[in-house]
Amino acid sequence: MTVFQLLLILGVVAAALLVVRFLPGDRSLALKRIFALIFAIAAVLAILFPNMLTAIAQFFGIGRGADLLLYVFIIASLLFSVATVRAKARSDARVTELARSVALIEARLSEAQADDPTHKDKDEDDTSSKRDHS
């Protein structure tokens, strides 16, 4: 095994570990972890047996293993981008719901305070027996 191969394997294993530990989600999480594992194993195999990649590529009619890798990588990249954009859109929607909730709660609160005739000034001495914090 060359030094380069060793470094690549270490890199793949590290990336797989990161993915397995820090990816959010529930059901999709299991799937993502399985894929990460499969990918890690395939990557290690491809690094140890570079000719294997070339053999697979030629099976598909592509010249070199590196080319196959590139194509697969491009597609994976595009899928990732789309998934990320959609995830951000969902996340933004949740933030909006949250911000709206806060705004409406605050409005209700300040209107309730304005309506309550015994509650004139927040800084007033808090000993009044009529004070009603409903």
Binding site: A99, A103, L104
Partner: peptide
């Protein structure tokens, strides 16, 4: 007045 804690947009 209802105040959004952050800017969300006219639709929101």
């Amino acid at each position: 007045i209802v105040s959004h804690p952050i800017n969300l947009g006219q639709g929101a």
